[in-house]
Design a protein around this nucleic acid. Structure first.
Length: 416
DNA sequence: AATTATTACAACCGCCTACCA
DNA sequence: ATGGTAGGCGGTTGTAATAAT
């Protein structure tokens, strides 16, 4: 049996609402209250579908709605909440008074997702010129002026480029938001769980998106991910695969190596970051995770590739992966084949991104894609705690990533 | 000045779930 | 237990607005 339509659509008006219609709807609801949307149009004398009336009311006519630009604080909150809740726009909207789910969704799709994509593109550029590049905003493209565009100089400053930390579910989300509202969240002792975006999601290896995230964020007396600032205790099925990297790979050595790499003319991370900034971020990341952590198993090298390929390059995850990779250097074919040492190995994956591996071609300039286990990349069989839907989503992410890449010719030749 | 390309965002669509008879 | 309905949600589309050519 087919689904019955929400209303009889014959003869109903569609498209933009006029002032007159708005006024009729507003007046009717003020007199009769919300609800009974199905019967509302008829009673109010509107030639609209009940759903359309509801949407119009909720998104534009009801009181307490903020109009105008999304503030930087709101934007920040959206990004952070998206990390925890994913595309649950209505849930995100409950934390942004006066903003509707539709508005937030649109803002995400038209502003934030693009920003993140731009950042990833910068981070994965194949430009081999080691010369530091100035931060230059892209040429203005044609099109309607966005609210965001009017908010000057917000995006292309380096100031805010640091990718937030991995999720640290140590406190209730509301508490974190309150903290954010009253202070600078970056200075807070505990951060709000961080944002994987659609393209970032694959990076939250340690805390996959969870529809019940809000309920679970208040961990109460649950153990922290961090154990005295050293290593990681995820208190989960991953326990067996957790490696205290500091034991295997002294932190000072990691820092030294990363420092050397950053000064070695390798600009894999991003053209818009200076070496110093990059190093600072890596160092902070290492400090943040209290030494080391690992989420994979013996196939962690492949995991690094998979995750990186499907997500934005993040300095934090980069640092983590670097260490993992360094630890697993013996299993890394390209390192041995090219005779690279641990340091080169770190360079290879220092953003955890497949594209960057192409930079490890070193002496001969050859591509190293052949050394990747692409079957595994596509199958995602080793993706952490994965299940079928995760794998499918990851696969879509990768395909999206490939598709979005500007250099189609290179992609074709590279991936066959 | 006209056209084209691109964008932001309002609105729609269809699916899902809770509720009720 | 079942089927119908309303409301809610996320994804997608249509289009007005705007910059670039």
């Amino acid at each position: 049996m087919g689904r019955t339509p929400c209303c009889e659509k014959v003869g109903l008006k569609k498209g933009r609402w006029t002032e007159e219609e708005d006024e009729i709807l507003r007046k009717y609801i003020q007199e009769n209250g919300e609800g009974s949307w199905r019967s509302l149009p008829k009673n109010a004398g509107l030639l609209r579908c009940g759903k359309s009336c509801r949407l119009r009311w909720i998104n534009y006519l009801r009181g307490n709605l903020k109009r105008g630009n999304i503030s930087s604080e709101e934007e920040d909150t959206i990004v952070k909440l998206h990390a925890s809740f994913g595309n649950s726009w209505s849930l995100i909207a409950t934390h942004l008074p006066g903003r509707t789910d539709n508005e937030i969704k649109n803002y995400w799709n038209s502003h934030l997702s693009r920003k993140i994509y731009s950042f990833r593109k910068l981070a994965t550029t194949t430009d081999t010129d080691p010369t530091p590049k100035p931060v230059i905003p892209p040429k203005r493209r044609s099109g309607r002026t966005s609210r965001w565009a009017m908010n000057k100089n917000k995006i292309y400053t380096q100031k805010g480029t640091r990718i937030p930390k991995q999720i640290v579910p140590q406190q209730n989300i509301n508490e974190a938001i309150h903290q954010k509202e009253t202070n600078d969240i970056n200075e807070a002792a505990v951060e709000v769980p961080l944002p994987p975006t659609p393209s970032l999601e694959r990076e939250s290896d340690f805390m996959p998106l969870d529809p019940d995230a809000e309920d679970k964020l208040d961990f109460g007396d649950e153990p922290s991910f961090y154990q005295d600032g050293k290593g990681l205790d995820i208190n989960s099925s991953l326990n067996d695969s957790i490696v205290d990297m500091e034991k295997q790979f002294p932190m000072e050595e990691v820092k030294t190596l990363m420092h050397d790499v950053s000064l070695d003319g390798e600009k894999q991370i991003s053209d818009h970051m200076t070496e110093g900034l990059y190093y600072q971020q890596v160092e902070e990341s290492i400090d943040d995770i209290g030494g080391a952590l690992s989420y994979g198993d013996k196939d962690i090298t492949d995991n690094n590739c998979v995750v990186g390929a499907c997500g934005i390059s993040s300095e934090d995850s980069g640092a983590i992966k670097v260490m993992n990779h360094g630890y697993n250097s013996e299993t890394n074919n390209e390192v041995h084949e090219l005779g690279h040492d641990k340091m080169q190995n770190i360079e290879d994956v220092n953003s955890g991104d497949v594209t960057l591996i192409t930079r490890s071609n070193g002496e001969n300039g050859e591509w190293l894609y052949d050394n990747l286990d692409w079957e595994n990349v596509m199958a995602f069989t080793n993706y952490g705690d994965n299940n079928e839907s995760d794998a499918r989503e990851s696969e879509e992410d990768l395909l999206t990533w490939l598709w979005k890449d500007d250099d189609w010719e290179i992609d074709c030749s590279t991936f066959g």
